[in-house]
Simulated scan of single mutants.
Amino acid sequence: MHAALPRAPSRLLPAWSRIVRTPRVLGHNDKVGDCVIVAGFNAVQTALARRGNFTSLPEDLPVRIYSSLTGYVPGDESTDNGTDPEMFLAWWKVNAIAGYRLGRFIRLNPADVDGIRNAVAGLGCYLCVELSTANEEQAVWRPDGFAGSWGGHAVWADEYEAADIGVCSWGGGYGIDGAYFAAPGFVSAAFALELEQA
């Protein structure tokens, strides 16, 4: 499914905030490359919070899914090679996470900040970014340095203010400067997700 969302929503608020008590999932992403799965778990946390459920999802489940999808063996760094996001999204269409399956995903133009904000104002936006080593020291990522020099990463975007987007990453909150989206190579993919209860 690669349909486009409307270019600009009919009425977009200047800011959209996540529900404050929504838990953030870390998984094992501070040690291994399960970020693709962790971003999906954070999407489910958003869906649950919007239904008034603030239960934290199990932190060990993303790495178990990562292992089953990629062959990652805990403790063996040679098997820690990350996950193709579309492979995970296809898996999620069949398998539920905390009672939610992926109904469909819509590929967005990663440079279209209005389209991404529109998705965030819906459920949220699944982003694949190519972090630079300069981003290591930034709480708000800017297009400094060379895209991808630190590596690829997946995050869940669930708030915005003006052109800046707020994301869940490594169990915490980070920001992405609006200029990051227009800079070549820093945002490699963006997906609006439609979840359905299993």
Rank of each mutant, 00 (worst) to 15 (best):
L195G: 00
L69Q: 06
V36N: 06
S149F: 02
R142Y: 11
R107T: 15
A189Y: 09
Y66R: 02
W16F: 15
E161Y: 12
V63C: 09
V38T: 05
A8I: 12
V63Y: 01
D112A: 13
E161G: 11
E77P: 13
Q138P: 05
P62F: 01
L127E: 04
R24E: 08
A182C: 07
V32H: 09
E161N: 13
W141F: 15
S68E: 14
I165P: 01
V44L: 07
A198R: 12
G75V: 07
G75R: 06
I106D: 11
R24I: 09
Y180T: 02
N109F: 02
R21V: 10
A43P: 05
E196G: 14
A190D: 02
E86V: 08
T46F: 01
L5I: 13
T55W: 10
Y100Q: 07
W156A: 07
G173E: 10
A183R: 02
R51D: 14
G122R: 13
P143W: 01
M1I: 12
A8T: 10
H2S: 14
A90C: 10
P74K: 09
W141M: 00
R50A: 07
S67F: 09
S78P: 04
N118Q: 11
A192N: 08
L57R: 00
N42C: 12
L193D: 00
R117I: 02
T46Q: 06
N81W: 06
G33I: 00
C35F: 04
A189N: 14
R104P: 02
F146L: 12
A134T: 08
A49P: 06
S132Y: 03
A198L: 07
G103P: 05
K31H: 12
S56M: 13
V155G: 01
